[in-house]
């Protein structure tokens, strides 16, 4: 913990600046995510809503990043773009050195399946499927055989301490347990990034702490994690905090620096 406070803010590192500046070029191996000038606009019957207005973001392997910002600042939009669920109107998006903007429908599906684990605020579990079957789904689309699928799904569920709940349906599980199932599902295909959009938004504070401990330990094991959250309490667990405002990055700092600032404002 104490070492964090010594380091300089990552937002200013020359390396990062260099990667973001070389537009049109594939970033090096270490960069899991690089976005250059990402814009996303919605046409609401003549009125243009600019959800993202040019986001430059570079994230390295093994980072644990929190994304914060006021409601409507574009956090979810950015996560959906990173998660290949949404397509930006402008800008480049590189994932593990591959340019996502030029991918076909099937390639995007493959990326969502293999490279990305997405945890939603509303869990998004299939209501009629058991926990085990929900976790098996990404493996089904990866073409993994039934026996291997079950084995890996069980393994993922026990990583989130749900050994005894495999055959329960979502409505037979508590909110925290549902989110654990969703995390197990996001992890089962060993994605290169784990994305979580307000994963504790629907949970009480005790359960939120539990879920945060799960993310914490995943990050400790070397999993790259990007998480959207409103709560400074929760952001405190991350090692880097990106703040969005009006579709632009307002600040991008080491957690230590962020915590100090919080200390001033709170």
């Amino acid at each position: 913990m104490s070492q964090d406070t010594i380091e300089a803010p990552l937002g200013a590192t020359a390396e990062r600046q260099a990667v973001l500046a070389t537009s049109g070029e594939a970033p090096g191996k270490d960069w899991v995510i690089v976005t250059r000038g990402i814009k996303r606009e919605y046409d609401m019957g003549g009125e243009i809503v600019r959800a993202l207005r040019g986001v430059d973001l570079a994230i390295q392997r093994n980072e644990y990043v929190a994304i914060m910002g006021p409601s409507g600042s574009g956090k979810s939009t950015l996560m959906n773009v990173i998660g290949c669920l949404d397509t930006p109107n402008e800008g480049e998006y590189w994932l593990n050195g591959a340019r996502v903007s030029s991918m076909s429908d099937d390639e995007l599906a493959r990326v969502r399946n293999k490279e990305i684990g997405f945890v939603f605020q509303t869990f998004n579990l299939l209501p009629r499927a058991t926990a085990l079957h929900n976790v098996e789904l990404p493996l089904v689309y990866a073409g993994v055989g039934s026996v291997e699928r079950k084995r890996r799904a069980r393994e993922a569920l026990s990583r989130v301490q749900l050994d005894g709940r495999m055959d329960h349906r979502p409505n037979e599980l508590s909110g925290g347990q549902r989110q654990r199932v969703a995390i197990a599902r996001a992890l089962v295909n060993n994605p290169s990034i784990l994305l979580a959009d307000e994963p504790t938004g629907n949970l009480d504070s005790t359960t939120s702490q539990e879920i945060m401990r799960v993310f914490e330990s995943l990050a400790d094991q070397g999993q790259t994690v990007i998480m959207v959250t409103h709560e400074p309490d929760i952001a405190r667990h991350a090692r880097r905090v990106v703040v969005l405002r009006d579709g632009l990055i307002a600040s991008d700092e080491r957690r230590s620096a962020f915590v100090e600032k919080l200390g001033v404002t709170v």
Binding site: A109, R112, N113, K114, L126, P138, Y141, A142
Partner: peptide, 16 residues
């Protein structure tokens, strides 16, 4: 529709 969205977010292709 939501189920389809969930499946797609988990990597289901059009043909799936």
């Amino acid at each position: 529709t939501r189920e389809i969205g969930i499946r797609k977010s988990l990597g289901a292709r059009r043909r799936d």
